[in-house]
Nucleic acid binder design. Sequence first.
RNA 1: GCGGAUGUGGUGGAAUGGCAGACACCGGGGACUUAAAAUCCCCUGACUUCACCGUCGUGCGGGUUCGAGUCCCGCCAUCCGCACCA
Length: 805
Amino acid sequence: MSEIPAYQPKAIESKWQKIWAETHAFEAEASHEKPKFYGLIEFPYPSGHGLHVGHPRSNTAMDIIARKRRMQGYNVLFPIGWDAFGLPTENYAIKNHVHPAKVTKENIDHFRSQLQMLGFSFDYSREVDTTDPGYFRWTQWIFLKMFEHGLVFRDKTLVNYCPSCKVVLSNEDSQGGKCDICHNDVVQLPKDVWYLRITAYADRLLEGLKDVDYPENIAQQQVNWIGKSTGAFVRFPFEGLDEEIEIYTTRPDTLFGVTFMVMAPEHPLIDKYADRIRNMDAIRAYRDECAKKTEFERTQLAKEKTGLKLEGLSAVNPITGKTVPIYLSDYVMMGYGTGAIMAVPAHDQRDWEFATKFGIDIVEVIQGGDITKEAYTGDGVMVNSDFLNGYTNKKDSIARMLEEIEKRGIGRPGVQYKMKDWAFNRQRYWGEPIPLIHCPKCGVVAVPYEELPLRLPDVDDFEPGTDGKSPLARIESFVNCKCPKCGGDAKRETDTMPQWAGSSWYFLRYCDPHNDQVYADRGELDYWMPVDWYNGGMEHVTRHLLYSRFWHQFLYDIGEVGCPEPYAKRTAQGLILGTDGEKMSKSRGNVVNPEEVVDEIGADAFRCYEMFMGAFDQAIPWSTNGAKGCKKFLDRVWRLQEKVGEGDSYSPALNAAVHEAVKKVSEDIERMKFNTAIAAMMSLVNEMMAQPAITRAEMETLLKILSPVAPHICEEMWQNLGHTEPIHHQPWPVWDEAALQKSEVEIAVQINGKVRGRIHIPADLTRESAEKELPENPEVQRLTNGKQIMKVIFVPGRLLNIVVK
RNA sequence: GCGGAUGUGGUGGAAUGGCAGACACCGGGGACUUAAAAUCCCCUGACUUCACCGUCGUGCGGGUUCGAGUCCCGCCAUCCGCACCA
């Protein structure tokens, strides 16, 4: 035992980070002999602000798992890269008159150094950057494959448009009517837009969830977002016209209760028959009114139904032959179903409200509620419904009605999804150019594969055009080209891909990042894929996680990858909040900078606190004092060096405690219970500190199980013990169940379920003999105090409960 | 409205139906020190008590059980996501 200098995290950490870099310590092995482990975190968007303490939570967790896997003998792929296209960089570039490529490079360098400061065991040799032409060449390649297979199409519809960012947004990017980038209100505009047909994969995206290990809330959120419903399309003829209007309903069995129909204000059939409609002026006024409403007004304030009747146009109920009036109302959306509904006010609350306001008949077809007060949506006996009368079961009545609908040829069963096709083009500069060409003769033609990558032209004006076009549209040399098919003059598509394009397949590129022949060698893909464990944020569940599953499923379908789902297991971390319990943001001024924390307590203590502060999947406020507590813990670990003796056994109890800690830490890391794993190590260290001496083996085992959490200090102490091989090459310790066994245990004695005392008993006492012998124990005798014993319950190692009268 | 989660000391949080509050933070007391920092030791859910003992205690109300923070039924509150989705 000798004098040990104080723990100096700064020196130790930079020393080991340098050694790891020089020895390429964490690069995946090229050989495919070992079992593999592919651990993934969402690659960061390198913003100008750098990291705050929330970002490393995911990285630290997966780093711990990756380090443990290496020690368990796996060939580990734990890569890092940069999701670097996107609007914040472009906006920064515009404001400061620098090229986004330059900003991106600076930001990446800053991010990389921040990550290295924290000692993550990334394989930096496999870094990818989505803005690198060598990367986005393959983003464009996959896009063209989709184009080839009919998954890319152009359509003029109402789209989400952010007037502030001047871009069209997907549904996923405009959730809640707010722009995902600037959080301003999104408006609905009719526009020509490129779509990816993600709805063709809606069922696959649902089905695939059954074969992967996702937490319930993530799977459920995807299910809700996809929003599958089954029902029927039914056609109602217009009275006196050779034209039908189709509706979608989930309750075709209520067809006899239809008393009116409602069309979305923008429904195209209205314009088609404008000359027959007598109140077109009023209709146009109503449309204008609806278009002006914000999302908030439409959903929150519009409890009161608005609308008006179509004069001069009505429909016929195809099952009853009765005339049905048609109304216009904005509670019916053009973007879902067919943009028109059959209204059954007795059994749909929205229809009920509308009917009540406009004095329309309400006809009951399902008994069980009071339809004068509100719509009845429960089950009941069907009435007023001809051949359906007497049905009591929803499933049966729907099946019967579907049969009838098909027999009469007035409709068909059908499925609807809330999820919409993915609006894929952005009218901005800093993204992958869409490799399509508009030829006046041939139409839309793909850029030939051999011409990829289609590079971004170098310009110095990135301002989005006022005409709703991308800045690329102003560059003649880029726009004008020859049609690859006919050789005639043609023009390039000038929009770029959305932020989510590059991230939809990056996990595949990591498998073989430097390949310039294919996006990744098939042998590498077959070895590494699928990702074994993917951790990330909840905010990506209905965007990146859905999009990338879609791209991967497509690649699987065309035989490019060998597994149908990209991620075998997905987990998500909770947010780290500011010390005030609010979400960290620059505007709130509660951002904690990791550099300052590391400067004060070191990266190891920082990592330790990130994992110790609370349950991994819960949101937790940052505590500066809590972080310091972890520094104190590592100080104690460091001082343990003074206690390492030459003997090979000092305390059997401590030896058992070491085995217990190995077991607890091994199991807790797998369950992402990092907080209790660290608590177990703290307890062990406290116990060790209380000993006069500990053995070298005990010290070494502690260092091994602590090393994934606090790698630098453990490498240093490992080296101080005289080792020349690094600790991350050591095998993960195993615990000995036998060593956990104690000869004697203390159990609680309960009387009628309340703890009254404690006794020491032999650990191997069987239930049978315990229940017979223990009531004789003097302490138990004292507690039962001569009362009549009704029942004795013995839980080995836990307690004895005596029921007395 | 629909879906998901959460509710435990002053704080963050532990707890396969089996000793509630592990492990920390904060706070209090003591040791060491000229002093401070660091470190070490002790106390720290509430009420009662000098102390032991005892009583109460996991959002609220019921229930199941020898035994409930945990399971069941009914509420309340907070957070997140979606939302006039036919």
